[in-house]
Amino acid sequence: MSRFFLWALLISGLSTGSVFASERDANALQLASVSAAVARLGSDEPEFSKRGDWVMPIASITKLMTALVVLESEQDLDAWLPVVKRARPAPVNAFSRIRLESEATRRDLLHLALMSSENRAAYLLARHHPEGYEAFIEAMNAKARALGMNNTHFVDSTGLSDANVSTASDLVKLANAAYEYPLIRELSTSSGRWVQFRGPRYGLQFGNTNPLVRSGRWDVSLSKTGYLNASGRCLVMIAEMGGEPHVVVLLDSLGTRTPLGDSGRIRRWLETGVGGNVAAAALNYERQRASEIAAELEVASPQSAGL
Rank of each mutant, 00 (worst) to 15 (best):
S169Q: 11
L125V: 14
S157R: 02
V213Y: 02
V38P: 04
L64C: 02
L212M: 13
S161V: 08
V155H: 01
P302R: 12
P89T: 06
R267W: 07
D262F: 05
R120C: 00
V278G: 02
G17L: 11
S215E: 10
D108L: 05
F197E: 05
L251S: 01
N176K: 10
L6V: 11
G203T: 13
D25S: 14
L212V: 12
A104C: 10
T66Y: 02
L114G: 02
F206I: 11
L270Y: 04
A280G: 03
V299Y: 13
A178C: 01
T62G: 05
V19E: 00
E103K: 04
R86S: 10
G275Y: 03
L183G: 00
R97A: 12
A59E: 07
H111W: 12
T62V: 09
A281L: 06
V34E: 01
L31V: 11
S188Q: 02
G216K: 09
L29Q: 03
D78G: 12
R233P: 04
L100E: 15
L114R: 01
A177H: 05
A294F: 08
K50W: 12
S117F: 13
A290I: 06
A90H: 12
G207M: 07
R198F: 10
Y133F: 15
R268D: 08
S188T: 00
W54R: 08
G264P: 08
A135E: 08
L6R: 14
S304K: 10
T258P: 04
A178V: 05
T272L: 13
R201K: 14
A126P: 05
V236Y: 00
R106I: 07
D78A: 04
D262V: 09
E244Y: 08
S35V: 13
R198V: 11
D44Q: 12
R107K: 15
F136E: 04
R24M: 07
P82F: 10
R51K: 10
N208M: 07
R201H: 14
P130G: 02
A139C: 07
L160A: 01
A295Y: 10
E45H: 08
V247I: 09
W7M: 09
S291F: 11
D219R: 03
A36Y: 06
S15W: 15
P89W: 14
R99I: 07
E292N: 06
Q303N: 00
I238S: 01
E103M: 06
L187G: 00
R120H: 15
R40M: 09
L297M: 08
P211Y: 06
P245H: 09
N229K: 07
Q196Y: 13
G42M: 05
Q30N: 15
E134M: 13
L29T: 03
A305C: 14
L68Y: 12
A94L: 08
N151F: 09
L212W: 13
S33W: 06
R145D: 09
S223F: 03
D262A: 05
G276H: 01
T158W: 10
L204D: 08
G159T: 14
A294D: 01
V84F: 03
P57K: 10
A139F: 06
L187M: 15
E103S: 04
